[in-house]
Simulated assay, not measured.
Amino acid sequence: MAVGEIIGINISERRGTQKKEISEVDLVKGFGLENDAHGGNWHRQVSLLSFEKITEFNERGARVGNGAFGENIIVSGVDLRQLPVGSQIRIGQAELVVTQIGKECHKHCQIYARVGDCIMPREGIFAVVVVAGHIKKGDKLEVV
């Protein structure tokens, strides 16, 4: 079982706006992060990205902050990209199931326009909430 740590939690109150960092949130079954504009009854309720991948990207001169890629949860210690669809993730009492690895980027984001690359389409993963729970920065994330 792989174990990581939650480094950041980000939400946006409206679609099309940058996510802002928060210290804790409720994960709502069948929805995603409470008050996040991208939550809902669909297969990409929660987006996750590895802290190490963000760090590597920034070391190439990008200088992007938490939430800039649209990620909800930043995790250290687990290479999320290696998890297959169907993987179960537990954070405290909450449980997620991975539904998608990466995503197609139909139009390039501001990061791509500025730097010429974006890691979310190939490194980000998406999940649905199957068991509700409260999470906070510093919590352990376990791949079951």
Score class of each variant (00 low, 15 high):
65 G>I: 01
84 P>V: 04
69 F>D: 09
103 K>D: 10
78 V>F: 08
60 R>F: 03
20 K>V: 13
118 C>Q: 14
33 L>S: 09
77 G>N: 12
132 A>S: 15
101 I>E: 03
100 Q>K: 15
100 Q>C: 12
102 G>I: 05
16 G>V: 07
79 D>Y: 05
86 G>H: 13
77 G>P: 05
96 L>G: 10
47 S>G: 09
98 V>W: 07
40 G>T: 10
103 K>F: 13
27 L>I: 03
48 L>G: 04
12 S>E: 00
44 R>I: 06
136 K>I: 07
134 H>V: 08
101 I>F: 04
3 V>P: 01
21 E>M: 14
10 N>S: 15
39 G>L: 00
91 I>E: 02
87 S>I: 01
33 L>E: 11
22 I>Q: 09
56 E>D: 15
137 K>S: 04
20 K>L: 12
87 S>Q: 10
6 I>S: 04
83 L>I: 10
42 W>S: 04
115 V>I: 15
36 D>K: 09
60 R>I: 06
109 C>K: 04
49 L>N: 09
15 R>T: 10
59 E>Y: 12
23 S>D: 11
8 G>I: 02
9 I>V: 11
85 V>I: 15
16 G>S: 06
91 I>D: 04
70 G>I: 08
74 I>R: 08
50 S>H: 08
32 G>F: 01
28 V>C: 08
71 E>S: 04
124 G>Q: 11
28 V>S: 05
126 F>Y: 14
131 V>L: 12
17 T>Q: 13
56 E>Q: 13
108 H>E: 07
117 D>L: 05
8 G>P: 02
140 K>Y: 13
40 G>Q: 09
97 V>A: 06
78 V>P: 14
133 G>E: 03
133 G>N: 03
42 W>T: 07
21 E>R: 15
14 R>H: 13
82 Q>D: 14
13 E>L: 13
60 R>K: 15
133 G>A: 11
57 F>Y: 10
49 L>F: 10
58 N>G: 04
103 K>V: 12
47 S>C: 06
57 F>T: 01
126 F>P: 01
16 G>K: 12
71 E>F: 02
129 V>K: 03
73 I>P: 00
122 R>D: 01
13 E>F: 09
122 R>N: 10
58 N>E: 02
2 A>T: 15
101 I>N: 14
7 I>V: 15
11 I>Y: 00
90 R>C: 06
63 R>M: 11
130 V>K: 06
144 V>L: 15
99 T>F: 06
139 D>W: 02
129 V>T: 09
31 F>E: 13
128 V>Y: 09
134 H>Q: 10
121 P>W: 00
36 D>S: 05
26 D>Y: 09
95 E>G: 00
79 D>W: 03
115 V>G: 02
96 L>T: 12
118 C>P: 13
112 Y>A: 14
90 R>F: 05
60 R>E: 11
124 G>A: 15
106 H>C: 07
103 K>E: 13
139 D>R: 00
30 G>K: 08
42 W>G: 08
2 A>S: 14
136 K>P: 02
66 N>L: 14
1 M>A: 12
118 C>R: 03
123 E>N: 06
33 L>T: 12
60 R>L: 14
22 I>F: 11
127 A>P: 01
99 T>M: 13
